[in-house]
Design a protein around this nucleic acid. Structure first.
Lengths: 338, 338
DNA sequence: CTTGGCACTCAGTGCGTTCGAGTGCCAGCA
DNA sequence: TGCTGGCACTCGAACGCACTGAGTGCCAAG
């Protein structure tokens, strides 16, 4: 087991390394942090920490840098979440309050997060899966052509064309519209399928085909839209990554364009609370030299989507986590208001 | 005036430099290109070209590299557009043919362009300004609440909520819907304002307020949507930029996130034909070390939006221009079909 | 368990040398 | 007038080398 002091040494190493980007040695450590022991003692502790795999030397006769495992311990046990200051919180709120629609909220969020953390920000559009239906509208564009419009409680609107197998009268359409809305308005997307399941039976035989077609289009829309959208920002911050550029940065840029990968990554993160994936903990290879801090956000108590940042493993975890949490909280508020 | 041979020397310099990324000297030039003259002669020519500002030396005793002005001359006078080979054309067509909707077309286009040119691709969504109205739909969500849906000939759908100043009957709504569509269906967005100008007069006094509100919302939608959207891809190709990374790449990444700037840039490019902006010709400072090759594309003969690539000034202009032109052409075809 | 002392390592730095690609200029030749 | 070969010169890149200093591991003493 690691003694209290050794953990303290690890914390000091992480903090210094994050600040200076340079391997940190025993002497410098005792000078900057008053650990109350001599460099020699620290050296012994370092040797122990290295044996356990928490820190490593880039080369002999250099200082130590934390390993992924070291950062993991730091995040889990040694560091808290650094809360935003009051002025920062006010600034966040002001900035987000100016948003005029959902796109704007998401756009502002991503810019804000990138700026606060000085890293790459990733924001997922509010997912429809957890959303509820505000309204379904049907309108006839031609005798056998219907347009389906779906409005969600997050303010998103989706529309689809439906080619009907048979002409569909205005009266039947009104009927379907009314029945559909009375059943699904205010309900969860996930509940819709079973709620509308027996709907065709209420109609005349000749209309049933059309009703089924409309319904299946509706269900498709719900499923398809679960392929969520992402917005990325602050990629210019990648230039602060390290010295050995091209090699480090290229796979990251590639990963950031693979929205599918990112969505999967966010999806795998825990549903509640903040998740930090460090270095090789990220399943995707291109992100092996990065850490991903993510958290769910939502309009009610429940999360409807995730947001987070991607940065070098050598990042200021407490600060980043604080910013991510604060932004998620305020975005949630904004969404709840609208 | 520059003699024929001097132009030939400039062409050779550009070609070699683009290939090797290294300053090119007189001896190497005569060896790779059979110019039929000795290095000494080439040196004289180079001195002349340098006096005119077409090439420059990074430092004394190094070879020459083209200046922005040199590239400009190269593009204008010395190089054509390199056409795609038949297999390449087929691959492009196949790849784009697989698209299922507008988003997919744009997404595929940007990926394709990035891959073909190995540079950063920029694709603007088809603009509404030049589009025509396919259909306008109005539907009543509540007595004094109307939803406006606009469908364009490029397959885009926009919707807006309208809060009416007074309750609006179903009959009046149907009337408005019919009149509106008969006037604007198939017409250009730009023509819509004057086409609907006198529409309120056809209605009862009590409905005129609502009609006006609906119309102004429609007009707003047309204008707002002129703030076009952009999609960017292939940013990972920025890593091939040069050796002095952080400094070069950072402003470019920043510029790429400023969609407003990019849209302005594309907008300024000539409306017809291909435009090449080299280095400092780009008004935006962050892009001073890049060249932008762009061209309009559209479903009919007319361009509805632009697409292009952003790359280092040291790029293969003929090849890039060929790829950009080919992609634009095929995207146009796809849009025309759908 | 801590500490001071000590020998050892090795990346980074500064300096001088060499190497060679490339230049400018000039005199001679067509 | 324009091309060419020759020649001296420049200067960045590469190399070798010694030095420095931060950092280490180990050990014996407190």
């Amino acid at each position: 087991m690691l003694s209290e002091r050794r953990l303290e040494v690890l914390r000091a190493i992480v903090q210094d390394y994050v600040g200076t980007e340079e391997p940190v040695g025993s002497k410098a450590l005792t000078e900057r942090h008053n650990l109350g022991v001599s460099p020699a003692t620290v050296r012994n502790d370092m040797a122990a920490l290295e044996d356990e795999g928490f820190i490593a030397q880039p080369h002999t006769s250099a200082g130590r840098i934390p390993t992924d495992k070291g950062y993991r311990l730091f995040v889990d046990k040694l560091a808290g979440v650094k809360p935003m200051t009051a002025p920062e919180r006010r600034a966040i709120q002001n900035f987000l309050d100016g948003a005029v629609d959902l796109d704007d909220v998401v756009g502002r969020t991503v810019r804000l997060l990138a700026q606060l953390t000085r890293q790459v920000a990733v924001v997922q559009y509010p997912s429809l899966t957890r959303s509820t239906v505000r309204h379904v509208e049907l309108l006839s564009l031609a005798p056998a052509r219907v347009m389906l419009v779906l409005i969600t409680d997050t303010g998103r609107v989706e529309q689809r064309m439906v080619d009907c197998p048979a002409p569909f009268g205005e009266a039947s359409l009104a009927d379907l519209r009314a029945r559909l809305n009375s059943r699904v308005t205010g309900r969860r997307f996930t509940d819709v399928p079973q709620l509308v399941q027996d709907l065709p039976e209420a109609f005349e035989t000749e209309d049933r085909g059309t009703v089924s077609t409309v319904l299946s289009t509706l269900l498709e829309t719900l499923v398809e839209e679960t392929e969520e959208r992402l917005v990325i920002g602050g990629t210019a911050n990648l230039t602060r990554f390290g010295h050995d550029f091209p090699l480090t940065i290229r796979p990251v840029l590639e990963a950031l364009e693979e929205h599918v990968v990112l969505l999967k990554l966010l999806g795998e993160a825990g549903d509640s609370g903040m998740t930090v994936r460090i270095g090789h903990e990220n399943a995707y290879e291109g992100l092996n030299s990065t850490s991903v801090v993510s958290v769910g956000y939502g309009s009610g108590g429940e999360a409807v989507a995730k947001l987070g940042v991607v940065g070098p493993t050598r990042m200021d975890y407490p600060g980043t986590m604080g910013a991510v949490r604060a932004v998620a909280r305020y975005v949630g508020q904004i969404l709840a208001e609208s």
